[in-house]
């Protein structure tokens, strides 16, 4: 039972990170129908930025929570700026082009950002300081859930709730939904669609950066390649849940996290990817639009 709980919590933690990244995929897809392959790299850049800032601050003699907060704020801003810029450089000029063109541009952007970090940093794994605080009250549960796991899950939950409220109730949130449903009509009502698209990239990037900082701090090491792997997993999660759907991204992330966790725990860690992608194939066969995908819910 304890083992089961441990795997459950492990899957929840992993799934939370996938969910945070998957939200960016799904939001961008919802608005411009593009798979933003460079999204995983934004997550990686978020983690690297946090590492650099945290190192500088530690050298300057700071410690504790203030390092986490400052490093996170800078990393989120920096990653958002990257997301914003990627859209402006690689996707916006191709908005009228055939669908394949921005997709190729996205793959190119992904490769470019990976190699840029590879050259600027190193190909080796770098140690990442454990920035997340130890919560004393978690000692009692240490057997199956650590402080950092609780923080990851709670942060994801809070972020998802804030995002949902933002999309549901704010003017920009409504404009995003309207743009996703009928871009030209939104324009006819005075929505600056370029701004909506930019905001979507900024929000998605910020969430990915948060995910990057959390997981890097939890696992304790990063390299230039982490974005690629996590990106593919999160993309799988988004498709699983139904790409374009926000609750779907979270659900897909969690299901994928649990699948991997249980596969690793009960079968073998060699099979974690096999199970994850087998699940994706099954979903695509029996529910092509994903679990909460548009064409099933939105049919009118």
């Amino acid at each position: 039972m304890d083992y089961f709980l441990e795997l459950l919590i492990g899957g929840l933690t992993r799934g939370s990170i996938y969910a945070l990244i998957a939200l960016g995929y799904t939001m961008v897809y919802g608005i411009i129908e593009l798979i933003n392959f460079a999204h995983g790299e934004i997550y990686m850049i978020g983690a690297f930025t946090a590492l650099i800032i945290a190192s500088v601050l530690t050298m300057a003699g700071m410690s504790g929570l203030s390092v986490l907060i400052l490093a996170s704020v800078v990393a989120v801003i920096y990653a958002s700026a990257y997301g914003f810029t990627v859209e402006k450089i690689a996707y916006k000029p191709l908005r009228q082009a055939q669908r394949l063109s921005p997709l190729i541009s996205a793959i190119g952007m992904s490769i470019f950002l990976q190699n840029y970090v590879l050259i600027a940093q190193t190909s080796d794994f770098l140690p990442f300081p454990s920035l997340l605080p130890e919560l004393p009250f978690m000692d009692a549960y240490a057997q199956f859930m650590g402080s950092s796991e609780l923080i990851i899950v709670a942060t994801t939950a809070v972020m998802t709730i804030i995002l949902t409220l933002f999309i549901k109730f704010t003017k920009m949130g409504k404009a995003m939904r309207a743009t996703a449903q009928d871009r030209n009509m939104a324009m006819l009502l005075g929505v600056n669609v370029n701004r909506v698209i930019s905001n979507t990239f900024i929000i998605g990037s910020a969430l990915a950066a948060v995910g990057g900082i959390l997981i890097a701090s939890h696992i304790g090491r990063i390299n230039f390649y982490i974005g690629f792997i996590a990106g593919i997993k999160a993309f799988t999660a988004a498709v699983l849940g139904g790409i374009g759907s926000i609750p779907g991204a979270v659900l897909g992330g969690l299901i994928l996290g649990w699948t991997e966790s249980f596969a690793t725990g009960y079968v073998s860690s060699d099979y974690e990817d096999v199970f994850a992608f087998a699940l994706l194939v099954l979903i695509l066969i029996f529910r092509p639009a994903g679990l909460l995908g548009k064409s099933t819910v939105q049919k009118v």
Binding site: K171, K174, A175, R177, A178, Q181, D182, M185, A186, L189, G190, V191, Q298, V300
Partner: peptide
């Protein structure tokens, strides 16, 4: 906008 409510559609008119 099919998935916005009637009121939300009207809100969008006053964007």
């Amino acid at each position: 906008f099919p998935q916005l409510t009637v009121m939300e559609n009207l809100d969008m008119g006053a964007f």
